[in-house]
């Protein structure tokens, strides 16, 4: 019973601390991004969302990258977000519709640093992004590259090496500079644990695949060049 009380108190404290951390951000951030884990997990929420959830930002991003990107925000999702609202019919295939893709606000250095600090405090629960889930074995990167492009088909939706790849998912050309390795591994294994209806499939990957793909992705740091 005492343990249960402690657990409830701990959970409440964790929720309150992430809520108060989120309060420090400019209120306009929460207009597009969920800064606290949403209670509404319906498909309708996905359909009306304007930007990716950030309630686990502190376990997802690298702080240096956030500080730099917030001052010069280049699109991470080349087709807009959510892609299904920002594409139009093209001559040969659907194409991004720039008139529907809103630019992310640009922050001044001090504001970017403050926002990054606050975002880094928004941590995912330890069981969502377990520390050390990526074992750090970089030898698998080459096989990871083959899995990404060929065997697992990630390239269908994500741009990887040399910017080659599909557009409906975030570009991963700079995944290593932008994302924490443990996040890449945890998210790739089961995106719906983070975001119940997200349009990235869960591919029943074996841990070996996850390790190799993560090793490959953490090496990518070329940005959108």
């Amino acid at each position: 019973m005492k343990g249960l009380l402690l657990a409830v108190a701990g959970l409440t404290a964790a929720l309150l601390s992430s809520a108060s951390a989120a309060d420090k951000l400019d209120p306009s951030c929460s207009g597009c991004h969920a800064l606290v884990k949403p209670t509404d997990t319906s498909l309708d929420r996905l359909l009306t969302r304007k930007g990716p959830d950030l309630w686990f930002a502190g376990s997802k991003f690298k702080k240096e990258w956030l500080v730099s990107w917030l001052q010069d925000p280049k699109p991470i999702r080349p087709a807009g977000y959510p892609y299904f609202k920002t594409v139009k019919k093209g001559d040969k295939n659907d194409v991004p519709d720039p008139s529907k893709i809103a630019a992310h606000p640009k922050l001044k250095k001090a504001d970017a640093e403050a926002a990054a600090e606050t975002l880094m405090a928004l941590k995912a629960p330890a069981d969502l992004v377990p520390a050390g889930i990526f074992k750090g074995e970089m030898k698998g990167a080459r096989m990871g590259s083959l899995a990404f492009v060929k065997f697992r088909g990630c390239v269908a939706c994500h741009q990887g090496e040399k910017g080659e790849g599909g557009l409906s998912g975030p570009r991963l050309t700079d995944a290593g500079a932008r994302l924490q390795a443990d996040f890449i591994a945890a998210y790739t294994a089961d995106p719906q644990r983070f975001d119940p209806h997200i349009w990235m499939p869960t591919s029943n990957l074996k841990d070996q695949d996850i390790q190799r793909l993560t090793a490959f992705l953490v090496q990518l740091s070329q940005g959108d060049k």
Binding site: L43, L46, K89, K92, D94
Partner: peptide, 20 residues
């Protein structure tokens, strides 16, 4: 949400990811 990324707005296999 899920199919249009590859099968396209026109449902004829011409989604935004097709060039890749």
């Amino acid at each position: 949400v899920y199919c249009v990324q590859c099968h396209g707005l026109q449902r004829n296999g011409t989604g935004i990811n097709v060039p890749a």
